[in-house]
Amino acid sequence: MQLIIIIISSVLINNYVLVQFLGICPFIGVSKKLSPAISMGVATTFVMTITAAVAWIINQYILIGLNLQFLEIGSFILVIAGLVQLVEMFIKKTSKPLYDALGIFLPLITTNCAILGLALLLVIKEYNFIESIVFGFGSGAGFTLALVIMAGIREELELADVPSYFKGAPITLITASCIALAFMGFAGLI
């Protein structure tokens, strides 16, 4: 039950992009077309799930164990950067199609604030190991959801008759804020 609540809360109620405003850069940058948006979403979900597991271990056994909580941010950045590199090499070796599908997005995720945010939130929420992984996966799914919704709308926006001064970034930001408002409505769900 606890796990289901974590999933619902991370996908809808505390959606990373639309409620917590983390990872806005890929949200605007990679949402022009649907298929790259899905690739980016899958890549992020993948990295988030792994990061959640590793960040939990580091936090539990190194940071708390040695009483070094002030090193949270530094160590998590280190872990995420190293991990993404490893995962990239591993995928390139084992599954070329997946590597091609994720493409440039995988290395870009290294500097995605949503991932660091996930690691830091894990510590604040004091989840156990399984809960952390579920939280990581849910967050990634929420990120994908936001990205896919946005990409779908932006594909239609291409055809819409937008006033010339609103074309491009302005109308995108307005659209994003409208979706965000809608997602705020989930706040009372649990």
Partner: peptide, 20 residues
């Protein structure tokens, strides 16, 4: 501890990446 643990982590990952 801080220096050792961060240095250790960094070393661990660099060795892992070099191996990989």
């Amino acid at each position: 501890y801080a220096v050792l643990s961060m240095g250790g982590l960094g070393l661990l990952f660099s060795v892992l990446i070099a191996l990989a």
